[in-house]
Design a protein around this nucleic acid. Sequence first.
RNA 1: CGGGAUGUGGCCCAGCUUGGUAGGGCACUGCGUUCGGGACGCAGGAGUCGCGCGUUCAAAUCGCGCCAUCCCGACCA
Length: 578
Amino acid sequence: MRYSEMFLPTGREVPSDAELISHQLMIRAGLMRKLTSGVYSYLPLGYRVIRKFEQIVREEMNRAGAQEVFLPMVQPAELWQESGRWAHYGKELLRFRDRHDRECCLGPTHEEVITDLVRNEIKTYRQLPRNLYQIQTKFRDEIRPRFGVMRCREFGMKDAYSFDMDEAGSEISYRKMFDAYQRIFTRCGLNFRPVEADSGSIGGKYSHEFMVMADSGEDAICYCGACNYAANLEKAEISRPAENGPAGMTPPVEEVNTPGVRTIKEVCAFLGVAPEAVVKTLIFSADGTPVAVLIRGDQEVNEIKVKNFLGCDLLELADDAMIRKVTGSPRGFAGAVGIKARIIADYSLLGMADCVMGANREDFHLRHVKPGRDFLIADHADLRVVRESDPCPRCGAEIRFARGIEVGHVFKLGTKYSKAMRAAYLDREGQERTMVMGCYGIGIGRTVAAAIEQNHDADGIIWPLPLAPYPVIITPVNVNEKVLFSAAEDLYHALEANGVEVILDDRDERAGVKFKDADLIGIPYRVTVGPKKLAEGKMEIKTRRSGEVIALPVSEVAAFLIGLISAKDLALSTKICT
RNA sequence: CGGGAUGUGGCCCAGCUUGGUAGGGCACUGCGUUCGGGACGCAGGAGUCGCGCGUUCAAAUCGCGCCAUCCCGACCA
């Protein structure tokens, strides 16, 4: 394409409303423009990158045996009522009524629609397993869209759904998708890592998130430096520590007056004890039932772990009324002794034999409290947030922290949807059985943004070759010198004739402007056609990433570039085949 | 929804304290010079100063209300 004919508005100013580098560069490099909060238009260059990525996704999904479909974005409320999500899905689900006053929503995800389709068409074990996917626009009415396309409301997503006869089959489908995801992100040249994740309210047995490593990422990742354990912070486990019987005698419980002392910090300062000797008592409302969660004073409760342990639908910190009901005192003085609630404790309480906690009485705390003697703990469990240098649950080495951008997520759904929506088949014996499902998502735009986060420098984007909108740009330094420009045009035609997507920067601009733009939009290879080298019968090829420049005879340039581009492809596919 | 900030040609911003003819840089149009890392000169086009109400002889500027955007938090298959 000739640059002069392209719709490619580049800018040198950093847009004032863009925080992340990827967001800034996507605007500056003319990839996209914002329409309204969390809603973006892709411009030709940006859409090209999107399509490049989608093509990689399609190839790998097809290779893994999935088949592409295209499902509706507008969905009837009935389906969502059937799965139970019409009530449970929050305001993220954009709901509206059509002219007949029928309730509808814009699809934030497609479990309901695909399950409806499959239950109507698949009746026998002979038709299983199946894996169907689509690349489609999702709408989620996020409370606070931010970071450009990273967390927006309308976005492209590849979502796949597997249907199997049983758990064993589902495991195989899951594995295939997991492997396909590894190939997809590897082919894009991204530094990523799969991490164990909580399956959240979508339900299901377990899941993995695919994280592109980036300090700007919204997600905290825990990983082990010694083995390959890696997990989302909210999922990362702590093993039950060995129980060393508490040594020595614990003096009898003593009530101490602690006027106005509520927080752990205040308690420690007032009583002159370390946070490790204090027990925090948090009152939660689990589907309306009060539960007391105990944790050592220096630790934080992981609400997701509590929720999963209790198996409740809604978990929130208790309000003042509930706190007063179970403790008989205002907020800030809760303790386990005499509390009117089920007591569960984090593993961090194991081995604590002489601790400080609230007295369930305003302005009083207890010291010399001994769990088991002064109160009973119903259950011990892993309920806390992992900290850096905690032991790895697999090998015991130290856990480290990093940040990442979630670009993919694979779930084992089990029968959550197939049961609710009665997606069943007949097995060999003619018995009706429920299908076992999995679902697998990739954020298209988010992956592109993540690629920029990981591949840029002060001058702009540095596209990995497989995602580059064009692999090559030809830059004649002066279009008014006929010899020079026609040499550039000859190369342009030669490359196009060989199927290379190439930009010819035919603008009557100074060379510096063209170089800056080529760098900004991140084209991997730039051919500079200038008077000095051309007089020697040569052109220069500059690699965007390394800055390396080589001069080649004009007649060899096209073949060299073609070889370079296909060699890179080959190297990547070899790499991921091993 | 709570806290904070910002809204001035397409983009980045000044002007507001102390009310008085709306400015600069980039971009854009024309002409000339220049031409291997975001050139220069001259001439030009382009703005309901987010919206509404109020105060005032007079509001971009002061007051009130609203809207939008961004950041932090809460929230989030």
